[in-house]
Design a protein around this nucleic acid. Sequence first.
DNA 1: GCTTATCATGACCGGACGGTCAACTAAAAA
DNA 2: TTTTTAGTTGACCGTCCGGTCATGATAAGC
Lengths: 189, 189
Amino acid sequence: MGRTSDAKERIVRSAMELMHAGGYAQAGVQEICLRAGVRKGSFYHFFASKSALALAVIARFRLFSDQFFDRALASDLPPLQRLERLFQMAAALQEETQRENGFVKGCPFGNLASEMSGHDEALRLALAATFTSLQHRLSELLQEAALPHAEEKAEALVSLFEGAILLAKTHNDPHLIRRMAPIVQQWIR
Amino acid sequence: MGRTSDAKERIVRSAMELMHAGGYAQAGVQEICLRAGVRKGSFYHFFASKSALALAVIARFRLFSDQFFDRALASDLPPLQRLERLFQMAAALQEETQRENGFVKGCPFGNLASEMSGHDEALRLALAATFTSLQHRLSELLQEAALPHAEEKAEALVSLFEGAILLAKTHNDPHLIRRMAPIVQQWIR
DNA sequence: GCTTATCATGACCGGACGGTCAACTAAAAA
DNA sequence: TTTTTAGTTGACCGTCCGGTCATGATAAGC
């Protein structure tokens, strides 16, 4: 019943772009609506608050990242080569955002985590779950490679991965992520 | 000539606390002044803008971090054990901030970098220089341990270090940083 | 003690912020 | 076709934002 609309979808897409590029605080509700072609009144028909939108944004980014990790870690290569492909693909992604925006946007989860996890518990938990998910995928990969202490090493790999993206953003040098690939190869054996 | 004052100092200290705990956007000029016991008019006597203050805050944090790295990497231990001490000390620091604030504050540089380096070039450069400084220290340490590819490995270690702190903040689990210590030992050899 | 440069004060600015609401429109279900 | 319900609109709210400025207080240098 009632009319249908893709406004909610447009709002989420708009918020994904703005929050990824400028962070949560920088992305104003007004600005998000403007880019989505939606009036602010409609925004609050779909979302109870800005932080509720952020939750939806994180969920949507996870769809992207899950597909990304599916491709990066696909079983068409030996485990350690998949790991290298993960870093190479992440580097390529950040190189692309640098070409388009002039600066490296970084990881949407890492960015929101450092900005929000101190004062929004719901967002913090959603972000933590995202990192845990990647950790589990990497842990399975390391187990497949018959490496000991897979869980702990996977945690370190996630740290290295997020840290490399953060440094790439800070130096505005996406190639930094690429330099991690051979080191990971060497370290993980 | 003219009167003297420690108001500028109080402002910087106040801003360090608030920006570390809540980030740049969350720390309002008003709130910073309130905690410093200074009226807002005085603030703009000492600082041209909020982002000028942030620059001073970063510089002041570097004094702290330089001392921190001096102690962590001091030559009273073999190189690799100094590296372990770095992670142990960082973990202890985040454990302390968690006890005091209820949540892990994370790295002041990493937090500001992910929030600001996309839209404030001066801050970005100050933050990048900070990471480069740590990288150089670690590179020298690795060279002292006669390890090849010291510069590249140092870059990876900085990534791992910052990433671990970011994950510790996201999971609100400072112990995560401690778990990196043995893995670094194993990886770096 | 007078001058002078520094610091302090508090009112004020325009605008942006997140959020609200009652009235209205339109499409799906009956 | 009528009802029902979801979606749309734009004006509006109070608050806080970073930033300004004229005026007044105070201590250092002479």
